[in-house]
């Protein structure tokens, strides 16, 4: 039994020894791979002409003096040249004619910037701005500034006790809302009309 435990421990210790050795080996391998990766990245930059003058001369020196760099450089250069030599795929002989027959049915669409009318954008922006400003003016005009005795006038406003229906049942508010709604509908109509015109133009 003791012998068994001893043997087991020894086996375990042995495994740990191997394991730590394995870890060290892995570290060496990963370090080597990282170095190789950096070397390849620098060489690709050199081949693509992306390195600066200083880096260029440093790599040229490394290629001349270091056998590993020289071998890797020639390998990558070979791959680079091969990639440049590859042929492009060719479509069928009728390709251009097919495209030209197809485009004969169409007209060049007007540039996006021309049919997205800036006036409409400004109009919509203005509509919302008028609404916000209108509501703010109306809201402020309803506040009784003199009644506030404290420093903070907002603390005097009891939101729960506010009579909201008073704001929205006023004739002026209703008129203001109606004008805004009509303005909005006019803008929408303008937009849809232009869109319809454009579609008609394309069909003709």
């Amino acid at each position: 039994m003791r012998y068994g435990i001893f043997r087991g421990n020894k086996k375990l210790t042995g495994q740990i020894d191997n394991w730590s050795e394995l870890c060290v080996n892995n570290q060496i391998i990963s370090h080597h791979m990282q170095e190789k990766q950096t070397m390849e990245e620098r060489l690709w930059d050199f081949i693509d002409g992306l390195s600066d003058a200083e880096e260029k001369s440093a790599i040229q020196k490394l290629i001349e003096e270091n056998l590993e760099w020289k071998r890797a450089y020639h390998e990558l250069l070979e791959a680079h040249q091969l990639l440049h030599q590859t042929d492009l795929e060719q479509p069928s002989m009728r390709f251009t004619r097919n495209v030209m027959e197809e485009i004969a049915k169409y007209k060049v669409a007007p540039a996006t910037s021309t049919y997205i009318n800036k006036k409409i954008i400004w109009g919509i922006g203005g509509f919302f701005l008028i609404m916000i400003v209108g509501f703010l003016i109306y809201g402020f005009s309803q506040i009784n500034w003199t009644a506030a005795s404290g420093n903070d006038p907002l603390s005097q406003v009891n939101v729960d006790k506010l009579n909201w229906s008073r704001f929205f049942s006023s004739t002026y508010t209703n008129i203001f809302m109606m004008i805004n709604v009509i303005l909005g509908l006019v803008l929408l109509d303008l937009y849809l009309h232009r869109k319809k015109e454009k579609a008609r133009e394309e069909v003709s």
Partner: peptide, 16 residues
């Protein structure tokens, strides 16, 4: 090939 043709048609239509 069909898709390539469509691409050229699209390019033509949005040339502006």
């Amino acid at each position: 090939e069909e898709l390539s043709q469509d691409i050229f048609v699209k390019a033509y239509r949005s040339l502006a």
